[in-house]
Nucleic acid binder design. Structure first.
Lengths: 238, 238
DNA sequence: ACACTTATGTGACCCGCATCACAAAGCTTA
DNA sequence: TAAGCTTTGTGATGCGGGTCACATAAGTGT
């Protein structure tokens, strides 16, 4: 079951058709060409690790195709998922800018196409291209925004149903498919959902079946159906 | 009891002596002059609100003196504190870059001196000054880093003692005074500490007295004394 | 010194959810 | 189709810490 947009993106980001959130789209073609010269594009299978926590930053990666999980792990193996990165977004920007080690691990959730640009090349490019620096700032700003929302969710929420409701609604809004109405793909395990909202796998399962019995939302296979958006919103803004 | 560095900073950021994390320090003086022309410096008393959640961004603010609390509030009045901003850092950068409403509220914790730069002026400055854009990206990168650490703390920690230990150690490291060894100022109420680590005021009080009885750390007045750093680190990396 | 407000300390209660321990599905791979 | 995974579904149990309810401080202003 191939998604329709899975073709035509891998050849060159010059022809990249992804509009939203794409770091390079919108830059003058002349500048893009400069990047083309220094970038390496390659593919990765599902489950590949693009970089790991505490590694020194080598460069940035632009996700051309696929989805990547950004997570942080504690000493005992517990994990939080920072976010799911979608095609068109940039990975490792923070490390490239700050020079500090990655604070998260990036792992592909499905086969991915990734363009890599060495840190020095990227920084040189930024210095010569003010507009690109501003774009970098915008991307970081967006990342920051997402991280803050997660702090809000983890720090302000009291009950798991509240967090889960918020998560589902959020997924419906910023979800993979732009056509997300009440029915969408949610290709995450309960475990992973738990890691996103800071709770245990079992509790996700239970809360989800609670939602189902209350006709709020149901997860059949990997398809999420939002049945009562209003009620979910009430829960989320509890 | 005035702090020694409280003089000489208010006149002009051109003469600003703050080194670390200062957004403008390090830029060529010629560029700084351009900013001087468009900035407005003013003072605020303790408890003043610089901007609030959901407001449209008007510009950025450079904190010349004092400390500012950045927090987010839920519908029912619960709050999380994102961070305490110290002199030399920038406020409202995210809003200025993205154009989106502020997602946090900024409130002064003590009398503050703040330089304001209108958003349009600031963006124009960035466009004409690539180096400044990179600095903006660096500041955002640093903000992002802090936010991620908070996600880690809130999402991975299981017990309050663990989070509190982490918080105290963190405060000791990145604390106000650069000279922080085992004894430092912690001018926050238990309530505020609770909002930083996502727990209730009572629990902060209790855990703190537990630390005291175990000779790990003690908070006398507003002075924090770390007595057994090692043991605290064990708790933090539990 | 007074009342008043804000911060801190403590006890009691109890519910949410983490944890453990399996069972039951699904899905892959041979 | 059997064996092997991974994912999901549920019960039982127990503890952490949120919440409520006060009792003291410790400041603040008049």
């Amino acid at each position: 079951m191939k998604t329709p947009q899975s073709s035509g993106l891998t050849e060159s980001c010059l022809e990249c058709k992804l509009r939203s959130a794409n770091f390079f789209c919108g830059l003058p073609p002349a500048n893009l060409k400069a990047l083309e010269a220094v970038k390496y594009t390659s593919g990765y299978p599902e489950g590949a690790v693009l970089f790991m926590e505490d590694q020194a930053p080598r460069g940035i990666m632009v996700l051309c195709k696929g989805r990547v999980k950004l997570s942080m792990t504690s000493a005992e193996g517990r994990a939080v998922i920072l976010r799911i990165v979608k095609a068109g977004e940039v990975l490792g920007l923070h490390g490239a800018i700050s020079g500090e080690p990655y604070q998260s691990t990036a792992e592909t959730l499905e086969p991915c196409q990734v363009s890599f640009i060495r840190r020095e090349d990227f920084l040189a490019f930024l210095r010569q291209n003010g507009e690109a620096s501003i774009r970098a700032a915008q991307q970081l700003s967006s990342d920051y925004h997402i991280a803050c929302e997660q702090v809000r969710s983890l720090g302000l929420a009291h009950s798991v149903p509240e967090k889960l409701a918020r998560f589902l609604l959020d997924w419906a809004t910023n979800g993979q498919e732009p056509k997300s109405g009440t029915r969408m793909k949610l290709t995450l395990t309960h475990e992973e959902i738990g890691q996103m909202i800071g709770t245990s796998r079992e509790t996700v399962t239970r809360t989800l079946s609670e939602f189902k019995s209350k006709q709020l939302a149901a997860l059949r296979g990997s398809t999420l159906i939002i049945q009562n958006k209003e009620a979910l919103e009430n829960l989320a803004n509890a």
